[in-house]
Amino acid sequence: MHALPKGKVCCGHPALNQKKALAWRRQKVDFTANTYLSREETIQPTMQPTHVIAATAASELAKTTAVSQQMRLTASNARAVAARAGEQGKSFKAITPFVDELAAISVSRVAEVVAWAREFSQLASRYQQVLGANNAYQKAELLLAGKRSKQLQLAQEQAAKALFESKQAQEKKLAQMVEALEALQRQLRSGNVIATLSFVEAALMPLEQRGDLNSVGEMIVASVAQIRQHNTTALKLLRSMQGNL
């Protein structure tokens, strides 16, 4: 963490002394406490341009793709374990459709949100380009000092329209993603219930078969935790942009 020079004000808060400023910065770090922010230089995400936050969120969500695929393997493994357990694994077998369902939902939802996040990231970058064009045309107009150019006016109108449409598209996509991620977070909660049921069933099995059932439960817990962690980070980043586009 870089300490602020003595007497230096922090981001427009003159009353903050160095200690308070450090605490304030730490709070900002906690805001996105995860692996990608382990380098403390990458603080204050709310001050980053939108397209950078969007790209970071997209990258965070992309990490969940492999984990959701892993969940699918866990579901296959659960079916195999149930088959091997035979009559004794009847109760466990009843759980496997839920594991299948959780895996299927995770894979499809994650794929959908990852694609949206990429799309949103592109929209945000495009917005920056259009914004740049808008600014350039405005500067040119100032330099022309009142001299009219129909073509320039047309270009300005097009840029302004593109800017408005781009903003609307971003807002829509952002709301869509936040909603989908919130739904996924709720669905992931069932993962813990399924894992607990696996552990309960394992406890009822003969000792030599408990390991397999326990490992299914452990795999579910681990996958759900990883997806949830990345989703939570992405959600916080996305929510920070709502109302700030």
Partner: peptide
């Protein structure tokens, strides 16, 4: 380049219509 664009556009429009 991008940086020059506003000044260039204004300079061109001072000579000819963009059409």
């Amino acid at each position: 380049g991008l940086e020059l664009f506003p000044a260039m556009l204004a300079a061109v429009v001072n000579i000819v219509e963009l059409t």
